[in-house]
Amino acid sequence: MQLSVQQLDDLRPDAGLGWRWEQLVQAAPASGLMQSLHWAAFKRTRGLRVLHLGLFAADELIGGALLYAPATAQPASLLIAPEGPVLPWEQPEIARAGLRLLRSAALERASKYAAVGMRIEPLLPTPRPPLLRDWGRAPVDLLARETLLLDLTQSEAELLAAMRPKCRYNIRLAERHGVHVRSSTAEHDIPLFYALLDEAGERDDFYVEPIDHFSDLLRMLAPHGLARLLIAEYAGAALGALLLTTYGQRAVYLYGGTATSERNKMAGYALQWAAITSAKAAGCASYDFYGYDASGNPQHQYANFSRFKRGFGGTPRTFIGAHDFYWPDRLADAVVRAVHALR
């Protein structure tokens, strides 16, 4: 099979090659929203530069990658493809050749981005395929490598039946308490969502992106039906909020937080159940809890919220994580520049 790579500029997701790209990404089990042109548009508003490479077999688009780079990069940067590249991983020989071509094409363009290497993070289950043997395990993962997936092809009754009894009870308890969950795509709800996320970040010790990250995300993705806020309210007060993304068959609970007070109202349970049913209604086949430790290790970074998520059932999944490939000559060049800066 004759493969080639072309740079794809300014594609529109609803027409021509752009539409074909979106179809390809949505059908690729190892890819997701972060490889869509919509996400690329969102990232551009956040000041990132985007390099879109398409992999062709003859004239047919069969894969590629959306690679993100920071606007300014001193002394060096990486070209990063979260949830990518899009490749026929089930056909290792084509995937191997495709990946090699994508890497060369990225290297040809690397100087424009001051890139010294490339990072990929396909959602491939462990073990790592041999074709990534020359890629190094990255020092950090952008995505949740260990997660919990809920099969949304089940009926609501089946989903509830598969939950732990206490979780099911808490969903009903929240309802009895009068916790109401509303869906919103309005930007004016962002401060409310952010306050709850920030409160959870403070309590559970994780970093939260700045508020405009979320307003940009909602503004860029909500009009296409790809993101929405769910807000759990009780007696006029917001007790929890969640940002849900849906793309193709996959829904992801990307961000969320609950208030420290009124925990006995079980708003977190109401919120998750609303997100699950909402994702199901949107036609998604799986719901990703985005971060989960299946082992129950209390020292795991996901330990706190994994206990909560465990109640909902689902199947734990471990991906291979992010992998890096550094171009020796480009990295050497950055090192030489750094040495000169020290003189």
Binding site: R46, G47, L48, Y68, A69, P70, T72, A73, Q74, P75, A76, S77, L78, I80, P82, V116, G117, T126, P127, R128, L132, R133, W135, G136, R137, A138, P139, V140, D141, L142, L143, A144, R145, E146, Y207, V208, E209, Y290, G291, Q301, I320, G321, Y326, L331, A334, V335, A338
Partner: peptide
């Protein structure tokens, strides 16, 4: 330092949802 800086400079890096403890090029974790 250059490699660390190339990571830090990426806006999403520090908010990453996971980190690797002693990951190796062998693919085991």
């Amino acid at each position: 330092i250059v490699v660390i800086l190339s990571n830090i400079i990426h806006p999403d890096a520090a908010y990453g949802k996971g980190s690797v403890d002693g990951g190796t090029t062998s693919g085991a974790y």
